[in-house]
Amino acid sequence: MGFSIPAGLEAELDALATRYPQKRSASLMFLHALQEHFGCVSNEAVEWTASKLGLQPINVLELVTFYPMFRQEKLGRTQVKVCRTLSCAMAGSAEIRSHFCTKLGLDAHRHGAQTTPDGKFTVEFVECLADCGNAPVVMVNDDLIGKCSAADCDRVLSKGG
């Protein structure tokens, strides 16, 4: 199955678990660390976390599926997050997402995050990015692009993943 945790990371996480009065409280920190290391939280990672913290895998899976920041599939190197909350939706965020999808050869009709086969880009809708005054807003990795236009999108794409 090819799931193995480097000894260093395991030791770090074991130490982390001791900092909480209850072991299960360390679940989120474990998942963050595992996602940082593997790029996503796979079912194997969920099972590993559960066995480390004395939980059942389903308890950990509940967390992973609840929080949008945890990913069950690997993301691309460039993550394009298009806001779809009210202001941005009214300012045309759907068209921006469609534009990205068309340019990257992704299916705009599919729900959820989509990654290009070469692993360079991930495009997805997200909820409010807290910059409603500049709608529509797109976040490319850690950079926020306000009043995003088709040209802005093309600029992001031209940089390559």
């Binding site: 759907a94 068209e95 469609s98 705009a108 009709h109 599919r110 729900h111």
Partner: peptide, 9 residues
């Protein structure tokens, strides 16, 4: 509901 509604352009 399986497919995301996209405005036809």
């Amino acid at each position: 509901q399986e497919s995301f509604p996209v405005k036809a352009d």
